[in-house]
Nucleic acid binder design. Structure first.
Lengths: 158, 158
DNA sequence: CTGTAAATGAAAATGATTTTCATTAAGAGA
DNA sequence: TCTCTTAATGAAAATCATTTTCATTTACAG
């Protein structure tokens, strides 16, 4: 993962990029644009496909590279749902309005975002985070919570 | 993932295998044996290496296949710490004595198992699990909690 | 406007995991 | 115990997401 110092300050991304010594390019804008508009969990190729019609000269390689930068900056979460490819979602921050956790079907890989119990969870997590951070001298920046099981359809199929 | 029906009953693995229609083979025993003895997070190749001296005729392919079966049976957890290969650990069950969660360094990929806050976490998770299960009609069988950040060393390096 | 280092695309390389296929062996039933 | 069916296996090849290489382009500081 690419990281230049610790660049997690606030401010919108024009500044965020520049502030961290990154250059602002068309490809990066395109990718951020798609990511901030799309709901859901996009793979690198998904993003490439969505961008391609409008920006045919942004390659898949650049998508990967940009996603790496973005997740290094904390602007994007890189997720793994066990289907062999990484998924990315725009980060709104763990306290942000749309923060959610995932419910993953181990059979069909369907993913449901839920926010229902987030408040209690986040409260507990913050505590835990603090405790862990102290005990293990970790600078915790993020967390991942996923529940696994069978979705309605798949558990029907037995 | 290979699954034959829902085979998550109790009992030790000789029976568990047979009960689910799987055959008990040398390779599978070897893999279970290593997994149950080793602490930590082994990759398929780690396991292959550990087994090889004693069972030189168990191939890497079989290791992958067996791990797939085992994780289908819920006897092994398949984990992803972001270093490009899957890691496996013997499952003691979410309520088992050694259940733990993970603290992952995003820089060097070091992983710390912690059990410190498990009790509170597990309690909340059980509630959440129940609520989510009902609302989304999911049969939840497992959960994953990981905190990400920089370990002491890596945050030292700035 | 210019120089320099960062960013890029295309193609090749990588590397974990999966598939193929011919062979072996587990274990149910005789 | 012997036989037969089918699951399990190893080796090699295939797959496929991601990374690297390298020559070229481009952002942007000065």
């Amino acid at each position: 993962m690419l990281t230049r110092g610790t660049c997690r300050g606030e401010g919108w991304w024009h500044g965020k990029f520049r502030g961290c010594g990154y250059r602002l390019t068309l490809g990066r804008e395109a990718i951020l644009d798609i990511l901030s508009k799309s709901e859901g969990h996009l793979s690198a190729e998904d993003i490439y496909m969505k961008i391609h019609p409008k920006y045919p000269n942004v390659g898949l390689t650049t998508v990967y590279r940009t996603l790496d930068v973005l997740s290094g900056l904390g602007m994007v979460y890189k997720l793994d749902f066990g289907d062999g490819r990484s998924r990315y979602e725009f980060a709104e921050g763990p306290k942000g309005a749309h923060h959610h956790h995932h419910l993953v079907c181990t059979q069909c890989n369907k993913v449901i975002d839920y926010t229902d119990f987030i408040d209690d969870e986040v409260e507990l997590l913050n505590q835990t985070e603090k405790g862990l951070g102290q005990k293990y001298k970790f600078k915790i920046t993020n967390h991942l919570i996923q529940f696994y099981g069978l979705c309605e359809e798949c558990s029907g199929k037995k």
